[in-house]
Design a protein around this nucleic acid. Structure first.
Lengths: 241, 241
DNA sequence: CTGTGGCGTCTGGTATACCAAATACCAGAA
DNA sequence: TTCTGGTATTTGGTATACCAGACGCCACAG
């Protein structure tokens, strides 16, 4: 037993606005905002009633969500959950491609062999057979793979910038048609990317990552279906809290 | 005279928080936050007195500034203007390189000849002779050139993401030693970039942009001088309002 | 001289009240 | 019925009051 009396400092960041922000963000991400009958309007007072706190921290959380592009607050109209247009999504993918291709280059330059090996292990954990059957699980593994590249780049800003994009990307999966062999081809791409990194070929790794993301870009562009806009925002489907 | 009575809709976005945000941001950007005697602490109540408005819109503006990384608000301590560390600046340059090199590629693919010509004109407006004498003016022209590439990419998100980086980049100029021939070499680089774009060589344009930005990265890394941290934040140098 | 504890003050966090614009609704006139 | 105008309601924006933690100061005990 140690002689000193040691306590770890408590986390003083338990502010309401922080908590509310998480709650609202998770709530928005959990609902299918592209569903035709989705309720896209939020109400500050209603939320303050449900959460039993005042409007102030809610407004701060909403302001933050607005800056991240998840909601739009219109004076004297209301707060609305934003649907991304195809064009916006395509732009996000473009920026993502820029970030991750640069990350791949940095990985080649800075990551050690053990880290690169971890990348391969991440991919190997999901074989081709399972991939076809569990699309959702593959999607998560897919994101983890790409995120890992950004992590290994050693550039935190590269990662955090991309993270703010990933936030918006999860919701689009339901809106893009799935093509039979896309998962297969995706896994092949990933293998090629790892091989280029293992070979320490920065130019090739960068190119492969970029081209891989461009494929997603074109795929979304090709198969995106616009949500039905006939219904507005008055249907009683609540955001899950 | 037209028969109808027509008025243009007034801009209803004149909210205080928006205005305060601009004021505070400009104020922060205008001061040399790396000066040894810079006052880095802000006070909500003091600001509300000076600006003759309540704390609420000020808090919203500060919250937004915090998310953009310009200030840090510490509960029960105060609001502090953030100094960027070298590492953070280097990461910003890295992300910038990623964004602009992708932009250069898109310019080659999507911009028409007239737009590319406008890019060259932008550069030509600043000859080499003047460049050496007016460093500040060149820096602005320099930023305009790079920003124009992002504009011509046609990807708004690429531009806006980079803009949030440029915000932080202006302040570092005073902290990096100037080297005699850096401006000269920079202009040469820019010429090469334009030539590659004019030749519609996407790979080359991307590489040149990236390498150009990497030069800045290395230059900052080499010549950055840490500010004197002996003084804290109690010296009476006010943020300009 | 030392350090301990009380206490006033400063500061951001939260709650609450009020405002003005947008909107919905309804009654009365044509 | 249809149009008009007033009015109640909704909603985000702003102002203000109060809270509790952090901090500095100082008297007082050891």
């Amino acid at each position: 037993m140690r002689r000193e009396f040691i306590v770890r400092p408590i986390d003083g960041n338990f502010s309401l606005k922080e908590h509310i922000y998480d709650v609202l963000r998770d709530g928005i991400m959990a609902m299918d905002i592209y569903a035709d009958d989705a309720r896209l309007k939020l109400d500050e007072r209603q939320l303050s009633d449900q959460l039993q706190i005042s409007r102030t921290p809610i407004r701060e959380a909403l302001a933050r969500l607005e800056q991240e592009g998840l909601v739009r607050v219109v004076p004297r109209k209301g707060v609305f959950i934003l649907r991304k247009s195809v064009d916006e999504i395509l732009e996000m993918i473009t920026v993502w491609a820029a970030l991750e291709s640069m990350a791949a280059r940095l990985v080649v330059e800075r990551a050690d062999d053990a880290e690169i090996a971890s990348l391969r292990k991440l991919l190997a954990s999901f074989g081709q057979d399972e991939a076809k059957t569990h699309l959702d699980e593959y999607s998560e593994a897919n994101i983890r793979f790409h995120r890992r590249i950004l992590e290994l780049s050693g550039c935190g800003l590269l990662l955090s910038t991309a993270d703010s994009l990933f936030l918006h990307m999860r919701a689009i999966r339901a809106r893009t048609m799935t093509e039979d062999d896309r998962v297969q081809r995706s896994i092949v791409d990933h293998n090629h990317i790892i091989e280029a990194i293992e070979a320490r070929d920065a130019d090739l790794a960068e190119r492969l990552v970029r081209e891989h993301t461009v494929k997603l870009h074109d795929h979304v562009k090709r198969t995106w279906v616009e949500p039905d806009m006939t219904e507005t925002d008055e249907t009683p489907k609540e955001i899950a809290l």
